[in-house]
Amino acid sequence: MIAVAVTACGGHGEDGPSATLQRADRQIPKAAHEPTDPSVQGFLDAALPKGPGGTAVAARDGRLLHCKGFGLADREKAVPARCDTAYDIMSITKQFTAAAIMKLEMMGELRVSDPIGDHVGPVPPDKRGITLHHLLTHTAGLDDGAGGDDYDPVSRDGMLGIVLKSRLQSAPGAEFHYSNLGYSVLAAIIEKVSGLPYERFLATHLFAPSGMRRTGYVLPRWRPDQIAVEYDEHGKPQGRPNEHPWAADGPHWFLRGNGGVLSTPRDMFRWHRALEGNAVLSAGAKRKMFKPRVYIGARQGFKLHYGYGWAVTRGDGSRIVLHDGGNDWGYGDFARYLDHRVMVFWISNYAHQDGEWNLEDHATELTRGIARHART
């Protein structure tokens, strides 16, 4: 919809959410039904350049209208992109981290007003005023420059130590500074408070109740051909997201919690549908999550605020909650038009072609166009 930001511990037990995800995954046929809406498809045929690979989704009134790939998920093996292709959803991961915090608040395990010192141990004086609310809204003042590359082999405690020793860009609550590190700190808090690895908490309390069968880091038993290969601006393959340096249980801690979750477009529809009801998050939790809390700027006539893990705005006759994600190779956009009960998700594993096209430059018009045709 509107660009927000660009980014860049579970096991394989036989019981629990891991086994549930694996059994459910096997129940999906390799060529599952891919609904196609003629109006949405006609728009995409006209709007998309030739070359990128990806999948586009549109839903209305809780029904999946359109979920169809364009281009290739693996160019070398000529594997088409599909509704059930798994992609790195990049910074869209943040909404799962925010939802996990809201779930823990519902369970009475924490409050968003808690200082981080309540959950991570002693903190230096300049960071004693940082609360979970500040981390959720990117107003903690953390400087992402203190961290390293997404694939640096840093542990949870190593990441926390770097954050606590870093110099703040601004006083807690004073300014908006988009922070991947802040969401990694939230992931660490989820682990410390719940006693579960980050991915397993999400799988147990968010994904399984939502019917999400192919979402996570390592708990789903991914087949290589399920996951899209990513390509740089010259069309050179960069491998699959989980082929980059990861720990045994998922990304290292400069990426965990703020990005790197793999999901399918069909599962992202299931997440949208779960958010339309109250089985995973209560109505009160969703009101808190979607409340516009800090102004982050205007884009193409839309005034954007940040809530908890989502950007919030009004436009096209509806309240809209949204988030995008991107890296050097892929790009995705997820938008929910709350008053129209319309959802749009599109994602590409090959989003940039040097000197020819860049889907990120047209993200707003693509998302708005899909939404407009989904309403007709």
Rank of each mutant, 00 (worst) to 15 (best):
N180K: 11
V185K: 06
A187V: 01
A187Q: 01
A187W: 00
A188N: 04
I189C: 02
I190L: 13
I190M: 11
E191M: 10
K192Q: 10
V193D: 02
V193C: 11
S194R: 12
L196T: 05
P197V: 10
Y198T: 07
E199L: 09
E199V: 10
R200Y: 14
F201Q: 00
F201C: 01
L202A: 04
A203E: 03
A203S: 12
L206M: 08
L206V: 08
F207A: 01
F207R: 01
P209I: 02
P209Y: 02
S210T: 03
G211P: 06
G211R: 04
M212C: 10
R213P: 03
R213Y: 14
R214F: 09
T215C: 05
T215A: 05
G216K: 04
G216M: 09
V218F: 10
V218D: 01
V218H: 06
V218L: 09
P220M: 07
W222V: 05
P224L: 07
D225G: 13
D225V: 14
I227R: 06
A228W: 05
V229D: 04
V229E: 07
E230S: 15
E230D: 13
D232N: 14
E233D: 15
H234I: 03
K236F: 14
P237F: 08
N242S: 10
N242L: 09
N242R: 12
E243I: 07
E243K: 09
P245T: 00
P245I: 02
P245C: 07
P245L: 06
A248T: 11
D249A: 15
D249I: 14
D249S: 15
G250H: 02
G250N: 00
P251Y: 04
L255R: 06
R256N: 11
R256V: 05
R256T: 12
R256S: 11
R256L: 09
G259S: 09
G260Y: 02
G260K: 00
V261N: 01
V261A: 07
T264K: 02
T264M: 03
D267W: 03
M268Y: 05
F269N: 05
H272N: 15
L275T: 04
L275P: 11
G277S: 13
G277K: 14
N278L: 10
A279L: 10
V280D: 00
L281E: 00
L281Q: 02
S282M: 05
A283P: 12
G284T: 06
A285I: 00
A285L: 04
K286E: 01
K286Q: 08
K288L: 13
K288C: 10
K291A: 15
K291T: 15
P292N: 11
P292V: 04
R293M: 08
Y295M: 11
Y295S: 12
I296K: 07
I296A: 04
G297Q: 07
A298Q: 15
R299T: 08
G301I: 01
G301R: 13
F302N: 09
K303T: 12
K303V: 12
K303D: 14
